[in-house]
Amino acid sequence: ENVVSAPMPGKVLRVLVRVGDRVRVGQGLLVLEAMKMENEIPSPRDGVVKRILVKEGEIVDTGQPKIELG
């Protein structure tokens, strides 16, 4: 899985990584606000952040790609 998608609709509060960052499985990639709760979205695997496809403040839909890992 190279693309991390939104598990639920919500607002991107914070992006916790930058392009080029090495990430580990379970590491937080971003914080999504859904139903007035903050949810940290974890990396599904070890890898390197290739692209960030969302911006802080953006509203995302379920299944929308957010971060691409290499």
Results as ranks from 00 to 15, higher is better:
1 E>L: 14
1 E>P: 13
2 N>H: 14
3 V>S: 07
3 V>L: 13
3 V>Q: 08
3 V>W: 15
3 V>A: 07
3 V>H: 09
4 V>P: 04
4 V>R: 03
4 V>A: 05
5 S>T: 13
5 S>Q: 09
5 S>G: 08
6 A>C: 12
6 A>M: 12
6 A>T: 06
7 P>K: 13
8 M>I: 09
8 M>W: 15
8 M>L: 09
8 M>T: 09
8 M>P: 04
8 M>G: 09
9 P>A: 12
9 P>V: 07
9 P>H: 10
9 P>N: 09
10 G>C: 09
10 G>L: 02
10 G>D: 02
11 K>M: 09
11 K>F: 08
11 K>N: 03
12 V>C: 09
12 V>T: 02
12 V>G: 01
12 V>Q: 01
12 V>W: 00
13 L>F: 00
13 L>N: 06
14 R>N: 07
14 R>C: 11
15 V>L: 12
15 V>S: 01
15 V>H: 02
15 V>N: 04
15 V>T: 03
15 V>R: 00
16 L>P: 02
16 L>Y: 04
16 L>M: 09
17 V>C: 07
17 V>T: 02
17 V>Y: 00
17 V>P: 01
17 V>R: 00
17 V>G: 00
18 R>Q: 13
18 R>M: 10
19 V>I: 11
19 V>M: 06
20 G>S: 05
20 G>A: 05
20 G>R: 03
20 G>I: 05
21 D>Q: 13
21 D>G: 03
21 D>R: 01
21 D>H: 05
21 D>C: 09
22 R>P: 11
22 R>I: 13
22 R>F: 14
22 R>T: 13
22 R>E: 11
22 R>K: 12
23 V>P: 00
23 V>L: 03
23 V>K: 02
23 V>C: 07
23 V>D: 02
23 V>S: 01
24 R>N: 10
24 R>G: 09
24 R>D: 07
24 R>E: 10
24 R>V: 14
25 V>C: 12
25 V>L: 13
26 G>A: 05
26 G>T: 03
27 Q>S: 06
27 Q>F: 04
27 Q>I: 06
27 Q>P: 02
27 Q>G: 04
28 G>N: 10
28 G>D: 04
29 L>V: 08
29 L>W: 00
30 L>Q: 00
30 L>Y: 05
30 L>M: 09
30 L>F: 11
30 L>G: 01
30 L>I: 13
30 L>H: 01
31 V>T: 06
31 V>D: 02
31 V>E: 02
31 V>H: 02
32 L>R: 00
32 L>W: 06
32 L>Q: 00
32 L>D: 01
32 L>C: 08
32 L>M: 11
33 E>D: 08
33 E>G: 08
33 E>T: 05
33 E>N: 04
34 A>S: 13
34 A>V: 14
34 A>E: 05
34 A>D: 07
34 A>P: 00
35 M>K: 10
35 M>N: 15
35 M>F: 13
35 M>E: 13
35 M>H: 13
35 M>T: 08
35 M>P: 04
36 K>G: 15
36 K>C: 15
36 K>P: 04
37 M>G: 13
37 M>H: 10
37 M>C: 11
38 E>M: 10
38 E>I: 12
38 E>K: 08
39 N>E: 11
39 N>K: 13
39 N>F: 15
39 N>L: 15
40 E>R: 08
40 E>M: 14
40 E>D: 06
40 E>K: 08
40 E>N: 08
41 I>H: 01
41 I>E: 03
41 I>C: 09
41 I>F: 06
42 P>K: 15
42 P>C: 14
42 P>F: 12
42 P>I: 13
42 P>D: 05
43 S>K: 00
43 S>A: 11
43 S>H: 02
43 S>N: 02
43 S>G: 03
43 S>D: 02
44 P>G: 04
44 P>F: 06
44 P>Y: 04
44 P>W: 07
44 P>Q: 05
44 P>I: 05
45 R>T: 10
45 R>H: 10
45 R>G: 07
45 R>Y: 13
45 R>F: 13
46 D>A: 11
46 D>R: 07
46 D>P: 07
46 D>Q: 07
47 G>R: 02
47 G>S: 05
47 G>W: 00
48 V>Y: 14
48 V>T: 10
49 V>C: 04
49 V>Q: 01
49 V>L: 00
49 V>I: 12
49 V>S: 00
49 V>D: 02
50 K>Y: 07
50 K>N: 09
50 K>L: 14
50 K>M: 11
51 R>D: 06
51 R>N: 09
51 R>K: 12
51 R>Y: 05
51 R>G: 07
51 R>E: 07
51 R>M: 06
51 R>H: 08
52 I>G: 01
53 L>G: 03
53 L>D: 04
54 V>C: 07
54 V>G: 02
54 V>A: 05
55 K>L: 10
55 K>D: 08
56 E>R: 07
56 E>M: 09
56 E>A: 12
57 G>F: 06
57 G>V: 03
57 G>W: 05
57 G>R: 02
57 G>C: 08
57 G>D: 06
57 G>E: 05
57 G>P: 01
58 E>H: 06
58 E>Y: 06
58 E>A: 08
59 I>L: 13
59 I>C: 13
59 I>H: 12
59 I>F: 14
59 I>P: 06
60 V>F: 03
60 V>A: 04
60 V>H: 02
61 D>V: 15
61 D>M: 14
61 D>Y: 15
62 T>K: 14
63 G>M: 08
63 G>N: 10
63 G>V: 05
64 Q>M: 09
64 Q>G: 05
64 Q>D: 10
64 Q>H: 09
65 P>V: 11
65 P>L: 10
65 P>K: 08
65 P>Q: 07
65 P>R: 08
66 K>L: 15
66 K>G: 15
66 K>V: 15
67 I>F: 08
68 E>N: 04
68 E>P: 03
68 E>M: 13
69 L>N: 01
69 L>G: 02
69 L>Y: 04
70 G>Q: 13
70 G>D: 14
70 G>L: 13
